[in-house]
Design a protein around this nucleic acid. Structure first.
Lengths: 292, 292
DNA sequence: CAAAGCTGTATTATCCATCATACAGGTTCC
DNA sequence: GGAACCTGTATGATGGATAATACAGCTTTG
């Protein structure tokens, strides 16, 4: 008799309350039901409820006051870094935030078949594979695995890859990059990505898979990116296009990024709010675990 | 002494192997290390390794042969439904697949503050809130929560909402929808969404938050969508634009969706593979729990 | 102040995931 | 055939998550 892999009850309640809070069912600043009430309501013990509340508190979603109750933290939810759909980070630098890159792995070899296929390589053709982590203000937010055909990869050094954008190096080699396709999806963090991004195993991640082609149609870069959703997300402005029968949304290209300044303000604000709390709770998760 | 919330070891190994397989480190069709080898390698018992392999097998990533070994399933990874970034499903219908909508909840009330703010409502202004699930070929793939100002929501009935696209109803009411902003992110499935999407609690989900504005700048729709990543993902074609100093990717609007037919074939194939597996085990978790 | 409610903390018992081990049966290879 | 693998299955032991309970200390309310 195989028992179902039941997620820990504390986690179940944590996710339930988290959804209620971010959905706004529990008004910000309001008190949520007492621990005994929650325990009976969800048919678990109070200890388990406390575990769930511990997680919520660590994420800054609630604030507990001994003798009084547990309250929904009324500061705006922490906004992730904003990236437009073309995945450009330049405006972050404009905002005076420092980005950095750590090169975790670098080497040449035969690529997995799925990547060879998407790059249009001949069987046995070699590629350069690299794994990098991007940091903003010292905190990791993306985990990038790239595969580039060997004849391109050889035109730059390992040190250059660690210092400059990969696409810039590819274009410097004489290749013109014209077209690309990308897909955005979600997955769970495995052990390596979790360690690199300073997350728990099993945390949710945004994924971006992009293949860049040169005009002839050959692939020149295969990028697989994992993003921390609390520090990164894709934003875009849309306009309604098409005639009456077939109306749809299209990305606003005119670059009327009217929200840009507003987003920037929000980001700054949330940042200060957060530091006001003292310790950044997300960050210390692992450390706390170690100590106890 | 608070014990560390260690993710289940079976899950840890499952994620590790999953990453290795999808990254292609283990060649498709190849045999992965035997269960005893994996057990000693990761310092767990063989029972735990088997749990991880059970999960991988259930997802169709590996195939086990008694007496022989466990092999990476060489069918192409299951491709999710493709949606372009404007999130249009019309081409799915063109492809002869049936979509359906289930209305889970419908009502009026005061919205949470974050939604009221993003819609630009006055304090106390009421909204219509609805929760819907979208199915494709009978399988749920998205969980949609929408908030619409009351004066718009009153122009259509509950039955109409269950039958027609919300945006169509909004436009029918005389409102012109011009602009929208959206953000794509990732999160974990809470109990309600997990049940509606036929998933385990804690599964990864793609999120899309879109706010639609009328020309005056007032918000007319707040959409929060959760997507099953194995059944849905965002695809887009990009072209390189801008002059030399400031080059970036922009979405290709010309609609040269050359991959469309290929994707369709893949999707159909994966579907048959899946039904071949017989019972879907994910669903029965809750029932099992009740009994014990 | 006193009562009622809340969070913080500790204790003991139970249940389930994991471990270590053993054995049965299939496959591969010599 | 037989040795050396492999997966499938069952066993009892162990540790951690959870349950049930009790109590201390704080806050709010009357």
């Amino acid at each position: 008799m195989k028992s179902a892999v039941e997620p820990l009850k504390a986690r179940r309640i944590y996710l339930l309350l988290r959804d209620r809070i971010v959905a706004g069912e529990l008004p910000p600043g309001g008190r949520l039901p007492g621990e005994p009430a929650l325990a009976t309501e969800h048919a678990v013990s109070r200890v388990t409820v406390r575990r769930a509340l511990d997680l919520l508190e660590k994420e800054g979603l609630v604030q507990r006051k001994a003798g009084s109750g547990t309250f929904v933290h009324d500061t705006r939810a922490v906004r992730p870094i904003v990236a437009d759909l073309s995945n450009v980070l330049s405006h972050l630098i404009d905002m005076g935030r420092s980005t950095d890159v750590k090169l975790l792995s670098f080497g040449y070899g035969i690529p997995p078949e799925s990547i060879a296929e998407s790059l249009g390589l001949k069987p046995g053709e070699r590629v350069q594979r690299s794994v990098r982590v991007r940091l903003i203000d010292g905190e990791p937010f993306s985990y990038l695995t790239t595969h580039v055909p060997e004849w391109i990869g050889l035109t730059y050094s390992e040190a250059e890859l660690a210092a400059r954008p990969l696409l810039e190096l590819i274009e410097r080699s004489g290749v013109t990059t014209e077209r690309a396709t990308q897909a955005i999806n979600a997955t769970l963090a495995g052990p390596e990505a979790a360690a690199a991004l300073d997350l728990e195993i099993g945390s949710p991640l945004l994924t971006l898979t992009r293949i860049v082609y040169e005009p002839s149609g050959r692939g020149v870069e295969h990028l697989h990116a994992l993003y921390r959703p609390d520090r990164y997300s894709f934003h875009m402005d849309l306009v309604r296009t098409g005639n009456d029968g077939e109306r749809r949304w299209s990305p606003a290209l005119g670059w009327p990024r009217t929200t840009e300044k507003a987003e920037r303000k929000k980001a700054d604000k949330s940042k200060t709010d957060k530091s006001k709390l003292g310790e950044k709770p997300t960050r210390s998760t692992r450390a706390i675990k170690q100590r106890s």
